[in-house]
Computed example of a mutant assay.
Amino acid sequence: MKKLTEAEQTAFEAAAFRRLVAHLRERTDVQNIDLMNLAGFCRNCLSNWYGDAAREAGVALTKDETREIVYGMPYEDWKRLHQTEASDSQKAAFEKNTPHG
């Protein structure tokens, strides 16, 4: 495997993140609960991780700001436009797969 420079690795990771975010913005039919049940993370997780990275770099971003970065719009707008009520089976799977501690 080719050894990447740190700059290349960072650039490629950033490009992959941007592509993932763009994909999730297009796939509004995929609900966060589906992502959580299948992959263990969702759009909100991505926005939280973004905020964590910003804080580690000394940049304070609010939860609303990081969610808007990931969703491409204010979170409340996205929920109103795209979020559906979770089914009983989705809720049951979420409860089964979510660690409670």
Rank of each mutant, 00 (worst) to 15 (best):
K2W: 08
W78G: 04
M36Q: 14
A22T: 12
R67A: 12
L46T: 03
W78A: 08
E26A: 14
V70F: 00
K91M: 15
A53V: 05
I33L: 13
E85C: 11
L20S: 05
Q90M: 06
R19L: 12
E65A: 03
T84W: 10
E95A: 13
A39K: 12
T98N: 07
S47D: 03
N48C: 10
C45D: 04
P74M: 03
E85D: 14
V21T: 08
S47V: 01
N37S: 08
R43I: 04
A14G: 15
F17W: 11
Q83P: 08
E85P: 15
T62Q: 02
V30L: 15
T84N: 10
N37E: 00
E8W: 02
N37G: 12
T66Y: 00
R80N: 10
Q83L: 07
F17H: 14
R18S: 15
T5R: 00
I33Q: 09
A53Y: 04
M36I: 15
K79T: 08
W78Y: 08
Q90G: 11
E65N: 02
A14C: 11
E65H: 01
F41A: 15
C42F: 02
R27A: 14
I33A: 09
D34Q: 15
E65R: 01
V70L: 02
N37P: 13
V70D: 03
N48M: 11
V59W: 07
R80Q: 07
Q90E: 13
R25P: 04
R43W: 02
T62E: 00
C45E: 02
A7S: 13
A39P: 11
R43N: 12
E65I: 02
T28L: 10
K96R: 13
E26I: 06
Y50R: 07
L20F: 00
M36G: 13
H82N: 09
G58W: 04
G72Y: 02
S87W: 03
N32V: 01
Y50W: 06
Q83G: 07
D34L: 10
A14Y: 01
A53G: 13
E68P: 05
Q31T: 01
V59L: 14
A7F: 01
F12G: 00
T62K: 03
E8T: 00
R55G: 10
N48L: 09
A86F: 03
C42E: 04
R18H: 12
I69C: 04
G40S: 12
Q9L: 04
T10F: 10
V70W: 02
L35D: 15
T5C: 08
L24F: 03
L24N: 05
Q31E: 02
C42T: 01
E8P: 04
Y71S: 06
D34F: 13
D52E: 07
H100Y: 14
L20K: 11
F41E: 08
T10N: 14
Q9K: 00
I33F: 13
L81A: 11
H23V: 13
T10E: 06
R55M: 12
A54F: 06
R55E: 14
T28D: 11
N48F: 09
A86V: 07
F41R: 05
L4Y: 01
Q83W: 05
D34G: 13
Y71R: 04
T62G: 05
K2R: 15
D29P: 07
Y71I: 08
P74V: 06
R67C: 06
R18T: 09
E6F: 04
V59D: 07
A22E: 07
M1L: 14
D29M: 10
T28E: 08
G40D: 03
